[in-house]
Design a protein around this nucleic acid. Sequence first.
DNA 1: GATTTGAGAAACCGATTGGTTGCATATATA
DNA 2: TATATATGCAACCAATCGGTTTCTCAAATC
Lengths: 103, 103
Amino acid sequence: MRRDIFQAVADPTRRAIIGLIALQAMTPNAIAENFNTTRQAVSKHLRILTECELLKQEQRGREIYYSLEVEKMKEIDKWLEQFREIWETKFKQLDNLLINIKK
Amino acid sequence: MRRDIFQAVADPTRRAIIGLIALQAMTPNAIAENFNTTRQAVSKHLRILTECELLKQEQRGREIYYSLEVEKMKEIDKWLEQFREIWETKFKQLDNLLINIKK
DNA sequence: GATTTGAGAAACCGATTGGTTGCATATATA
DNA sequence: TATATATGCAACCAATCGGTTTCTCAAATC
């Protein structure tokens, strides 16, 4: 039961679910309508996403609304940070090169 | 053979490899020394990372130096973009709330 | 109260994953 | 030239994954 955010986001269906509910909270049935699988399969994805705290549930009668814990997405952003530095440096180096050529 | 960048980055060992060679190009043997697995297992990871263009190889004699294609990392950043908007909006809303309370 | 509806849990299944061992090949080095 | 070294590839294996079907349970609706 390896449940880290990177593994959660690795599956394309789960990324699509995240994209969907980023806009508005949705029930499992409503989410499942957007995919070519059973509601149960979607339910499994929701479980995984919820377990790693990317989604939160809100029960309303017999319906459960799932919404995105957008803060959790920052963890991916945080990991990217170290590489962002590198690619920005590279960009600046290229920029300086072009400036020097111009001169 | 699903070889997308999100799946590549899902594995913790692969993330560690990326972190390692981000600093400097390294050979498979040198990389493998940092992990508690066989060289062959690392080799498999390198293959996957190379296939999705996160790594590039440079042959030098019988050695192969692997280095990071940092540009490719931007694809993850690009996907995050849509959520960054959301979390920044939320932050601003919180900010405005605090300003209003202050008043 | 009986029936329909929304949702999760369990059991099962084939495909994929991450790892191993063993082998093949090319380049250095003695 | 013979040997050591660096690497990749193939075959195999247990564990996990993503999916299905079937079932149960609780809430809504008739």
